[in-house]
Simulated scan of single mutants.
Amino acid sequence: MIPAPIPINGDREHLSLIIDQSGVVRLLSAMLEQPVSGSIDLALEFDLCLEAGLAFSRLTKILATGLNDDASLLQSPAALSSLSTGLIHLLLENVPHRFSGALARQPTLPSPRHIRRAIDFMQANLSQSISISDIAQASQVGIRSLQEGFKRFKGMSPMAYLANLRLEAVHRDLIMANSATTVATIAQKWGFTHQGRFSGDYRKSYGCLPSQTLRSGHSSDPDGR
């Protein structure tokens, strides 16, 4: 995140703020407690006259001063990181984007530690065959406590949450696949062996068939494949 003064028409100057997309994706993934892929599609305008916009503007000026004028933030990486994270939070929570609805549905309380442990285990073993017992053991609670925790904080069972993570991985691979790759190959890679059921679940989540996503990815190939 690099704020820099850019002179425009003589004495006038504007403050530009460059935000690394990977940082936005990492923070959004942490806020949603699930991987994020594809374009975030942030709206192109942020009203700086509204309360959130004013806060964003003030923080940006503080960041610019601390990096350019008095350079105080260069001596305090922790403060610099906190200010940068705060600016990204303001953007994600106040500027419409593709994941705004998902953020709004997030519980106000953070997930308990055992839920986070379970999700970390799922993400580390997405392509492996894992059971509810494996997840419960990794989260260090019993199966019943795990199921109740997921129902309360995620609105679904642990295995349904795992299936959603795997669908997201399939979706990402379909977009990035080359023309020689098949839907079945990608689906099997992420543990989907029943093609009919997989296609139905994918369509419910993404509004199209997996084969359509695969063709869409090919159509954007710069070589026309």
Rank of each mutant, 00 (worst) to 15 (best):
K204A: 13
S211Q: 14
A180I: 06
A184W: 07
T182R: 11
T213Q: 11
A177E: 13
T185I: 02
F192G: 02
L214K: 05
V183S: 12
G207P: 10
C208L: 04
E168M: 12
E168T: 12
V183E: 15
T182D: 08
D201I: 04
V183P: 13
L214Q: 00
A187R: 00
G207W: 12
C208P: 01
Q212I: 07
P210V: 05
R166L: 08
M176E: 15
L209E: 14
S179L: 00
A180M: 05
A187N: 06
V183H: 08
R172D: 15
G196E: 09
F198N: 04
G191A: 03
S205R: 15
R197M: 01
T193N: 13
R197P: 00
Y202H: 02
Q195C: 00
E168A: 15
V170C: 06
T182P: 08
A180K: 02
S199F: 01
W190C: 03
D173P: 01
K204E: 12
T181P: 00
Y206F: 14
T181C: 07
V170A: 04
T181K: 06
K204H: 07
A187E: 07
T181D: 09
S199D: 01
V170T: 02
F198C: 00
A177H: 13
I175Q: 14
A184S: 15
L167R: 03
M176W: 13
K189V: 00
L174H: 05
G207R: 12
G196T: 09
Y206S: 06
H171V: 10
Q212W: 04
Y206D: 08
D173E: 06
L214W: 06
Y206L: 03
L174N: 06
R203I: 04
V183F: 11
R166V: 01
R215A: 07
A169D: 01
E168L: 12
A184L: 13
T193L: 10
M176T: 15
G196L: 09
Q195R: 10
H194N: 02
Q195F: 06
I186E: 10
A187Y: 10
D201S: 06
Y206Q: 08
E168K: 14
R203S: 03
R197H: 03
P210E: 03
Y202M: 05
Q195G: 01
S205A: 14
G191E: 05
F198I: 02
C208S: 04
R203M: 06
F192V: 08
G196I: 04
Q188Y: 08
I186Q: 13
I186L: 12
L209Y: 12
A184F: 09
A169P: 05
A180E: 04
L209S: 14
Q212M: 08
